[in-house]
Amino acid sequence: MLKGSLSHYSPLSQLMMSLLVVVGSFMLCMFAGSVLAYLIFDVNIFTDATSLDINGASVNISVLKFYQSIYSTGMFIIPPFIIAWLLNNKVLTYLFLDKKSSPPQYLLAILTIIVALPAINLLADINSHLQLPEFLSEVEEWMRHSEDQAEIITKKFLVMETPFDLFVNLILIAVIPALGEELLFRGVIQRIFSNMTKNVHWGIIITAFLFAALHMQFFGLIPRMAMGILFGYLLVWTKSLWVPILAHLINNGMAVCMSYFINKGKLPEDIEKFGGNDASIWISGFISMIILTLLLFNLYRSRERQSE
Rank of each mutant, 00 (worst) to 15 (best):
K100E: 06
K100A: 08
Y94I: 03
L97Q: 01
L111E: 11
L117Q: 14
N121H: 07
D98V: 05
L123E: 05
L111F: 14
S128Y: 07
V115L: 04
S101H: 03
Q105Y: 07
I126A: 02
D125A: 06
S128G: 04
A109W: 06
P118I: 09
L107I: 14
S102Y: 11
A109H: 04
L122Y: 12
D98T: 05
K99N: 03
T93S: 10
Q131R: 15
Q131G: 06
I120D: 07
L130M: 00
L117A: 15
T93W: 06
E134S: 15
A124P: 02
D125S: 12
I110L: 12
I110W: 10
N121A: 04
H129K: 09
L108I: 12
I114R: 04
A124R: 07
I114L: 14
A124V: 01
I113M: 11
A116D: 09
T112P: 07
N121I: 04
N127T: 01
D125F: 06
T112M: 11
K100L: 13
T93F: 02
Y94F: 12
L132T: 02
K100H: 11
I114T: 07
P118A: 11
I114E: 07
L132W: 01
T93H: 10
Q131H: 15
K99P: 04
N121L: 03
A124Q: 13
Y94L: 00
Y106S: 13
H129V: 04
V115F: 07
I120L: 15
I120F: 15
A116F: 15
L92Y: 09
L97H: 00
L122V: 00
S101C: 06
T112E: 06
L95C: 00
A109C: 08
I126G: 02
S102G: 08
A124C: 01
A109M: 08
